[in-house]
Amino acid sequence: MSPGSLPRYIVQRLLLIVPMIWVILTLVFLVLRVAPGDPVTAAVGDRLSAEALAERRAALGLDRPLLQQYLEYLGNVARLDFGQTISDNIPIIDIVRDNGGATLTLALAGLLFALLVGVPLGAVAGRRRDSISDVVIRLFGVITYAAPVFFVGLLAKLFFSVQLGWFPTSDIATPITKFQVETRTRILLLDAALGGDTDAVIDILHHLVLPAVTLGLLLCGVFIRLVRVNMLQSLKADYVEAARARGITERRVTSAYAFRNALVPFVTVLGLQIALLLAGAVLTESTFNWPGLGTRLIDYITARDYIAVQGIVTLFAVVVVLISLLVDVVNALIDPRIRY
């Protein structure tokens, strides 16, 4: 219970990242190699003779024993050298740097939408259990969670972009905006804002709406269910009855007692939802041609580019772990009972 144990907990969690990354690297390494095809066949398989293909494989080191390739790759990663893509010879670091910003923008916007819409809806549904609004909200939650992201994305594009013409169908900004915004942080939206370019900011936000809502709806369904269930639980709690007996107003009972206490378990599982958020981001990006890591990841998977896929997946894994750690810390701040 000593207050100084939170830093120790954080260090422990950070150290645990190392074995976890090893497991993920190994899994990705194996899965990619079990999958049919290799980078060479994927790129030029139907155009070159068998000898020429073998030659190319040898040049990439793909003809060596699997174990040797594996150990060599692990060794490189241990030196923080993630290597270069096989298909287009770009350092992994550059891919992350150039595309990470777009993914970050999309993921945060989607998360923000889900929090702003899903959490209040879940709270209302829990407060008014079995009312019409509860039934409607629950139905909405189930549908948004169950519907595939790419399907929702396509429908949204078809309706809002093609039919109504309200939003662009794809990409993060118009070519002119991309050209004009000066690169500083490599997060386009932030760069535009820092440069004071209002038109560019509006243009990017305009492009962001549909992808962010599409991704946000996926999480929204999860959030509604989580908040609703926890709200129902905390409304039944003894301290809620005791507060009513003290004459605390129903509004305050709902907000300070039921809702606040419902947020504790919600925040706990929020960390787990980050994985869903990133998975959703990959699909959303490819649906909307959003120039982020997800789009690149799918390109490289198609190209059987082992190095690229390993690098991007590892990055995703690290992000998930760091964010769930952050969530734990936030939770300790919300709930005075939690001490690690």
């Binding site: 709690a237 301290y239 009855e241 005791a242 300070a256 007692y257 606040r260 206490n261 504790v264 005075p336």
Partner: peptide
């Protein structure tokens, strides 16, 4: 009117 309950452990808001 006031009420005092049987289980004091769960009657106060843990976050307050």
């Amino acid at each position: 009117l006031a009420m005092i309950f049987q289980e004091p452990l769960t009657r106060l808001n843990p976050l307050m």
